[in-house]
């Protein structure tokens, strides 16, 4: 159930990304005319709070303040300060359903059912950005990714990412109950936000370490191997878990089929 829901969600997002990309002139251009002036306006007159941030503050004061404190200053033992984390971090955490966190645990689990809509997450992001600036995702990310070199991204992925997320992007276990999540069905924005802000235990890959172009290469590679390319080696990829599921399959499928066959062959007829 969860898997198929996730797949559906992935499809929807992918289709959405495609629509945005192909209709770039119309949609992106339109969005630019609406959002960009506001964004630049905010930067130019630092300190002034815009309408989105006000809406974000309302949400913040009802849903986040318990752990992250007044004005994002953090609460000792509950939640870290959010000053300076930027809108990228907020949107990543909120859009993937990690925040608001239901209970304190080894790490915030992602969820297919985020509490807030994407629009609300943007408001929250605007508010946090108003509190202390921080990292933002480039607006032309999809175009950057489309222009990215998959091969270079692969090299970067293997050096920086595969140790936790696995060669095939399926995720992996970390110490004491934490884990690196699977990358399947993840959007370009979420990948970018995660690298930029280092959520949870993930190290930060800031722009001076991986330039936006390198990040785009990386995203292009991840999308290629995890979401775009179909496994050529069969109908079932056994979850790409490697030898552990392959070993299981040889006993559950191969050995079982042949054991039943031995019973048939040697059975009385």
């Amino acid at each position: 159930m969860a898997a198929s829901a996730k797949r559906r969600r992935g499809w929807r997002k992918r289709l959405g990304a495609l629509a945005r990309f192909t209709g770039a002139l119309v949609i992106v251009g339109g969005l630019y005319s609406v959002f960009s002036p506001g964004l630049y306006a905010q930067e130019s007159e630092a300190g002034a709070i815009d309408a989105d941030a006000v809406k974000g503050q309302e949400l913040y004061d009802t849903s986040c303040i318990t752990c992250h404190g007044d004005n994002g200053e953090g609460v000792e033992g509950r939640g870290p300060s959010l000053i300076g984390v930027g809108s990228a971090a907020v949107e990543f955490q909120v859009n993937t359903g990690r925040m608001p966190m239901a209970a304190q645990g080894a790490q915030a689990p992602d969820s297919d059912y985020p509490v807030f809509t994407e629009e609300e997450a943007e408001w929250l992001g605007a508010y946090i950005e108003y509190l202390g600036g921080g990292d933002v995702v480039p607006d032309d990310l999809d175009a950057l990714v489309a222009a990215g070199t998959v091969g270079e991204g692969g090299e970067l992925y293997r050096v920086n990412c595969s140790s936790c997320h696995g060669f095939s992007g399926g995720g992996g276990a970390l110490s004491s109950g934490a884990h690196a999540p699977s990358l399947s069905g993840v959007t370009n924005e979420e990948l970018y936000q995660a690298m930029l802000t280092g959520p949870q235990n993930m190290p930060v890959f800031a722009d001076n370490q991986l330039t936006p172009e390198q990040k785009a290469d990386l995203i292009a590679y991840v999308q290629f191997i995890v979401n775009d390319d179909r496994d050529p080696g069969g109908v079932f990829n056994l979850g790409r878990f490697g030898p552990s599921t392959e070993g299981l399959a040889i006993f559950l499928v191969g050995m079982t089929a042949l054991l039943l066959t031995t019973l048939w062959i040697a059975g009385k007829s």
Binding site: V159, N160, G198, P203, V204, F205, A206, N208, Q209
Partner: peptide, 9 residues
């Protein structure tokens, strides 16, 4: 090249 909380090989 390495920001706080980051690592590089």
């Amino acid at each position: 090249m390495v920001s706080v909380g980051g690592q590089i090989t």
